[in-house]
Computed example of a mutant assay.
Amino acid sequence: MFAIQFDEPGGPDVLKIREVPRPIARDGEVIIEFEASTINPADVKIRNGQIAPRAAHSPFTLGYDIVGTVVETGGSSLTDLPVGSRALGMSAMAVSGIGTWSQFVKLSADSVAPAPEEFEAATLAQLPLAGLTALQGVQALDLAEESDVLVVGAAGAVGNLAIQLLRNRGHRVHALVRSDEQAERLPAEIDRHVGDIPDSVVDAVLDTAGIDMSDALHPGGRHVTVVPGSAAVDAKLIITRESGAMLRDLVRELDQGLRLGEPIVYPISEIRSAHAHFERGPERRIALVN
């Protein structure tokens, strides 16, 4: 089977398409045949050496998100993930060392959820990592009803989903972005801020960009970051964890109107060009398809 790998950190040119052995599912595991994934900032940081995967060694296989078809299961208890069904999952690659940019991906069944058929694979592949990060960040805030919440980095993939999740839960959302152009793309119903925000105006801050906006908090407000190494050093750090149960929750949110944008799509065979495009800073997400 193919896999996208690199031996030593560097630019997009270090990425190689290789033939590697196909995995075998053990009890409680599933194997998903690759249909689509996305490029996330963590993929680039791992490729260029800013992040070193804890449980892996060279060569490294990249990738967090996966949408595809279940082709093998270990054990007989996976009744909602039968062979031939569509699934989506997230592999915490920086922790587990298991990347999803390969023809067949082995994951714990607990990390996988049934995938809705009505979405294009490239669109749906935007959900796992960004959605789990946003949902776990929102849950970590442990908010009272109708709180004022600032989302830092609101124009990004995680920030966009966090805004929607917060609004769906009845909170008043403030969004911090870098430019007027980004602000114009945000929902008109939220308070949009470019570059800065007044002091002491919100009950909670969710940092998705690594920026310290703690001055915006009321005294005693809640502060969560999903960015390792964030400048928000006093914020509670959330490291996104795999969760099939939460992915099921996010799929239900899709049924209730959670929106995923239309990505820019590259064949996975053009992975170097896709990475180069990502590093130029596109305003839409980049999906990879087989």
Score class of each variant (00 low, 15 high):
Gly68Pro: 10
Gly137Tyr: 01
Ile24Val: 14
Leu165Tyr: 00
Asp199Phe: 02
Leu166Ile: 02
Asp180Val: 12
Leu186Lys: 05
Glu189Gln: 06
Gln136Met: 07
Val233Phe: 01
Gly170Arg: 08
Ser108Asp: 05
Gln126Trp: 11
Ala122Trp: 09
Leu254Val: 15
Phe2Leu: 03
Ala121Trp: 07
Asp215Trp: 05
Ile268Asp: 14
Val227Tyr: 03
Val158Asn: 09
Thr61Lys: 02
Glu189Tyr: 00
Glu19Gly: 05
Asn168Ser: 14
Pro282Lys: 13
Val205Asn: 00
Gly68Thr: 03
Ala3Cys: 13
Glu279His: 08
Pro116Leu: 04
Ala144His: 03
Val67Tyr: 06
Gly153Phe: 01
Glu29Asn: 14
Ile66Glu: 03
Leu78Gly: 11
Val289Asn: 08
Ser200Met: 02
Arg18Gly: 04
Glu270Lys: 13
Ser269Val: 15
Glu184Cys: 11
Phe60Gly: 11
Gln139Val: 07
Asp7Tyr: 15
Pro198His: 02
Ala92Ser: 05
Asp234Arg: 00
Gly257His: 15
Leu258Pro: 10
Ala3Asn: 08
Pro9Arg: 15
Gly153His: 01
Gln126Ile: 07
Leu78Tyr: 10
Ala130His: 06
Arg192Gly: 01
Ala154Asp: 06
Ile271Asp: 09
Ile286Cys: 09
Pro116Tyr: 03
Ala140Arg: 08
Met90Lys: 07
Ala209Pro: 08
Ser85Lys: 11
Ala3Asp: 07
Glu117Ala: 10
Gln182Pro: 06
Ser230Met: 00
Phe104Ala: 07
Ser230Thr: 02
Leu254Lys: 15
Ala109Asp: 14
Glu72Lys: 07
